[in-house]
Design a protein around this nucleic acid. Structure first.
Lengths: 206, 206
DNA sequence: CGCACCCCTAAGCGCTTGCTCAGGCGCCGG
DNA sequence: CCGGCGCCTGAGCAAGCGCTTAGGGGTGCG
């Protein structure tokens, strides 16, 4: 599946078509140059429209970022919650969470880069809303680790610190991952799952 | 030591005084808002000067970023090389490297944030120069891990991938670290050193 | 004392930015 | 065939951007 097909799938429920094209154009541009270095003319140009067309579908440039950030954060949170609430031992659920979370960050590294590294450009209220989602994200991972500690499967002296480190490790994949590189998203996910299991001192390490 | 004293110490060899004040003002502003969202008027204002004063000491706004990036990267590289070339077992040297690298990223998280997350705003030539420094940084960490594998102290199936993950983990400290938080830079360094030792499957894990 | 030098400012230039607005094209039901 | 409406464009506005220029004041050397 090419990047183009991936992107239209990812934002399939955004209508009308022009609004979606603008949104995916914004994701591309924000990921490449950063929010502040991207002009509304650039976004409109990538979507094949005039600059004014943007404002028929979105009130401001910041709203574009907010929409992208919201969808991305809810998606990421969904992945982690699904893994947390799944079946299996804590180790299996943690590995599953990391595998899928990392895989998403690698596969959709354009979107993920915007989601994870451009939230500082959000307006105050929007920022607060997104930060709340991020707290939930942290909570989901912490839940799994606490389960493992309670079951005696993990050896984690500092649960909060380790949770932070695990999430930080996974998120940063969006920064360095290169689609042209040697590693596939699946491979990175696998490697990271094993690394994280080691970080939590998992006894029966796979 | 306050943030102010820290900053003047960090850039002690920048002269004249006005040039240093502008540089530290730029570090603050870039770290807070990002390079592209920072105006030359803001930088000059923080340094207590008029906008024009900036151009007596630096040719462009980008040169400020380049200078900051260069100093920061050379400093970070120095920390890792010193640890690599030090005495002790590979495990001790790796722990030392992580401890000090992370501690620097936490203590100087303002500078580190600019160094690690704003390099995309550099001009083409300057960018290439900085990327070379980053390759060396990667090499220093890889050297230590390879030593540990060769000595049979580490169990690392994927050396390049693990090196990348270790560096990524440490670098990302600059993004989330908060000086007002509960954790001190030293504590984070200690925690991360132990996590990294686990990641490389170190046998006599402290 | 005079003058050259360094460091600085006030003013502003040319350009780009986010965003607006009046109007036009095409598809729709009647 | 017509009229309304959803979607889009060309032109452009006010504000802010990076950066330049002409000139002033303090300091130290001859």
């Amino acid at each position: 599946m090419g990047a183009q097909a991936q992107r239209t799938e990812e934002w399939a429920d955004v209508t009308p078509d022009a609004a979606r094209r603008l949104l995916t154009a914004a994701v591309e541009a924000f990921a490449e140059r950063g929010y502040h270095a991207t002009t509304t003319r650039d976004i409109a140009g990538r979507a094949g429209m005039s600059p004014a067309a943007l404002y028929i579908h979105y009130r401001t440039k910041e709203e574009l970022l907010y929409r992208i950030s919201g969808v991305g954060h809810r998606l990421a949170l969904g992945i982690l919650r699904q893994a947390r609430d799944g079946a299996g031992t804590p180790a299996e659920r943690l590995a599953d969470a990391v595998r899928r979370f990392v895989r998403w960050h690698a596969e959709h590294h354009t979107t993920a880069r915007v989601v994870q590294y451009e939230l500082g450009a959000l307006g105050e209220e929007h920022y607060a809303e997104i930060v709340a989602l991020r707290r939930d994200t942290d909570g989901a991972v912490r839940d799994i680790i606490e389960d493992g500690v309670a079951a005696g499967d993990f050896d984690v002296p500092d649960v909060r610190g380790t949770t932070l480190a695990v999430l930080s490790l996974c998120i940063d994949v969006a920064r360095w991952f290169n689609a042209d590189g040697k590693r596939s998203p699946g491979e990175v996910g696998e490697l990271y799952a094993s690394l994280v299991l080691r970080m939590v001192g998992c006894a029966q390490e796979r």
